[in-house]
Design a protein around this nucleic acid. Structure first.
Ligand code: FES
Ligand code: FES
Lengths: 143, 143
DNA sequence: ATAATTAAAGACAAAGTTGTCCTTTTTTAT
DNA sequence: ATAAAAAAGGACAACTTTGTCTTTAATTAT
């Protein structure tokens, strides 16, 4: 459904939100280990998440690492998808027509429409903070 | 959601089923034109659909082209996905965990599970024949 | 039989994805 | 101040996807 980069991005953000803080930053090797992702590749992805939107923060030097500001916990998976450039996927036609719409529907449009609505709801309703809370309540995994 | 190749494959099969027959085979340029796909690339995809499974038939030479045997109209989109090698996508974890299961669920598993069930139902319930019938009843497009 | 037509097959190229490594910059601890 | 630690940034390689083109093989119409 998503690229490897986006999968790693989502898992990394959840892990950073769960285990990190400004006082206890997480270093790259720890993050990559926790989500079972290639470290150098993960570094590139984390840069993308810090650069423009500053969804996560990074600090260089000893005791440096990554953390997420509390106010960013209201952001949702959808925001991560947007940053990673896969946000449009949630608007697209399942058969690849240029536009998914009522006026030019593909043969699967009727069935797919309600599913697409649920996909959108899922990614827009699940905030990072909520996911962390759910992870603490139940038994969930990132690898 | 799917690769370009798979999108073209599904659209091509539906078009061939709708407009072609053993008596009136469809040539490559006509198919590519109808689904707005690059002709040479489409040729490769159609070979994949004829080779092992013979989901579609091909005949070379003058008045040659592609058509689909009536008995294949009961096959579903899922079969096309399998042939194109994207069938596993419907079993996979949305966050890319090695296995999507109750014993090692990712934080999105609970929400995604019912959606995945509907995706699977969609691709397994829509047979090629049914899609053609629906296309003739309503106004649907392949480009 | 011959020529025309059409898909099959293979070679190739451009672009994107995934992944690795090396150097630079920033920051902290001493 | 200096050295160490950590991310940033850039170069690069392997692989996959997408797409194009050329040659070959099969089939049909004449
Ligand atoms: S047009 Fe294909 S899903 Fe809406
Ligand atoms: S484990 Fe991630 S969707 Fe089931």
């Amino acid at each position: 459904m998503f690229s490897k980069a986006t999968e790693y991005a989502i898992r990394a953000v959840i892990f950073i939100a769960q285990k990190g803080s400004e006082e206890h930053k997480l270093a790259l090797p720890e993050i990559a280990e926790a989500i079972q992702s290639p470290p150098f590749f993960t570094a590139k992805i984390l840069q993308k998440l810090t650069n423009g939107s500053q969804l996560i923060q990074s600090v260089r030097g000893p005791n440096g690492g990554f953390y997420i500001r509390p106010e960013k916990l209201t952001w949702t998976i959808r925001e991560i998808l947007n940053i990673m450039g896969e946000g449009e996927m949630l608007d697209k036609c399942v058969l690849g027509l240029k536009l998914c719409s009522e006026i030019n529907p593909c043969p699967l449009h009727e069935v797919y429409k309600p599913i697409k609505t649920q996909l959108n709801a899922m990614f827009e309703n699940k905030s990072i903070g909520l996911l962390v809370k759910e992870m603490e309540a139940g038994q969930y995994f990132l690898m």
